[in-house]
Amino acid sequence: MSIRAKELLVLGLIAVFSLIFYVGKVSGWKAVQFSTTVSIIVILLIVLSLVWILIKTIRGSLIERRIVFLYVGIAVALPLFMSLSQKIPISPEVKAVYDSIGELPAGSKVLVSFDYDPPSAPELQPMAEAFLYYCFVRDLKVIMIGLWPQGPQQANLAIEEVFEHEDIKPKNLKYGIDYVNLGYQAGNEFVIQRLGSDIKAMFPSDYRGKPYDEIPLVKNVKNFSNIDYCFNLSSGFVGTREWVQIAVDRFGVKLGAGNTAVQAPQMYPFMRAGQLIGLLGGMSGAAEFEYLTEWTGKGTKYMLSQSFAHMIVVAFIIIGNVAFFRSGRKSRLDR
């Protein structure tokens, strides 16, 4: 089979699977769920196959890269069908975000900046949903903005999801009174700088075009001094670093953040210095926050996949090092 034919075959398969998943989603199909026994048997089989790979490696036979890809695919996909539960430990940085929101009195204004786009949504969207849920449960007023073009759309998706929850529905939250989406503004860190002096100058209307002064929630909000808490969801530039450097250092804003796992380590110095109140790092941060806020979201659901994927990577690091030492520390695993 030629390469072009293989590409077309893969594209065709992806299209068929996408169609099936879409039909399933809109039709409300229930996902197949393995029982606990089946789940444990599947895990044992995977572990046994890894042991077999380790034995093969010790005997001098190296595995191909596509086998690693296959195991990662299995580690991510299979747990989605398993019915196993894990105890989620709470890290101090996540607890700090939770506590800081808990300390705000009802009616406090919280500014949430959605500085990410769909590629980072699997990690950040669960945080956004859990955070908004917790704000609404505590009767806080939420002002949403985006310094990334897709940010306001992600905010809408999160709101849509949160409003389906049985704790939120009876509150009958109203747009413009309990929450508002001011949309996207170009200008990166200069937007943050300007919010410190005049929010209206950067967001003269909401994302639908309604004038700022006609929105009851924000008409008396002049700048950061009228905001009680800021929360930044970020996956790069412009993001948490700029919010710390400008909003916190210049204007003394109270800031919590949610970052992708890749970016989160860069924020620890800010947290250690007290510039950042707390941090939700990656999907595990989202799962921890969901656990604290009692929001049943995707962070917790996907943690089993993440646990499996991490274990698979660790297993292959061990296998790779076995191969490395077995070959007198000269091995180049190019295959």
């Binding site: 690693v68 990662v72 994927a309 698979i312 292959f316």
Partner: peptide, 16 residues
């Protein structure tokens, strides 16, 4: 990225 991270970890994370 997950696939490339796993593959890169397998090949590059060595106790040299």
């Amino acid at each position: 990225l997950a696939f490339f991270v796993a593959s890169a970890s397998y090949r590059a994370f060595r106790a040299r």
